[in-house]
């Protein structure tokens, strides 16, 4: 079975989650725990870098849906970056691009948080 991996980095006040592998109903809880930990520690400026993400199912998108409102109400955001075309297509089919900041590159997300 292919794995899903997640690692956290900090860039000034922005927390960056690097996710890789396959995000489905089995692995979504790992992403959920990582996001919860950040929010519990008052980190609301969050970038999810999807460079290594090979696959996403709706259970993975559900995690972003569950936390975006809270994070925005606390003055932050969850910005998604560096998706491959196949992964982006799933977000697009469900209408995410009009509601989420989905950017080509991590640097763009960091710049938006610094403005």
């Amino acid at each position: 079975m292919k794995n899903f991996n997640i690692a956290t980095r900090q860039h000034q006040h922005v927390s960056i989650l690097d996710i890789s592998g396959e995000l489905d109903a089995h692995t979504a809880s790992q992403l959920e725990n990582a996001l919860k930990s950040l929010i519990d520690e008052d980190n609301y400026a969050i970038v999810v870098n999807c460079t290594g993400l090979e696959y996403i199912a709706s259970a993975g998108l559900g995690v972003f849906m569950a936390y975006i409102e809270d994070v925005r109400n606390l003055g932050g955001d969850i910005k998604l970056t560096n998706m491959n075309d196949r992964v982006y297509n799933v977000f697009d089919l469900l209408g995410f691009p009009s509601l989420y900041d989905i950017l080509e590159d991590e640097q763009e997300a960091l710049e938006r948080f610094s403005n």
Binding site: S58, G62, M65, A66, E69, D70, L94
Partner: peptide, 15 residues
């Protein structure tokens, strides 16, 4: 309805 689901913090129903 994605906007409604986000407001209600509902996930799922998209499959």
């Amino acid at each position: 309805d994605l906007i409604k689901r986000i407001k209600q913090k509902k996930r799922g129903g998209m499959g």
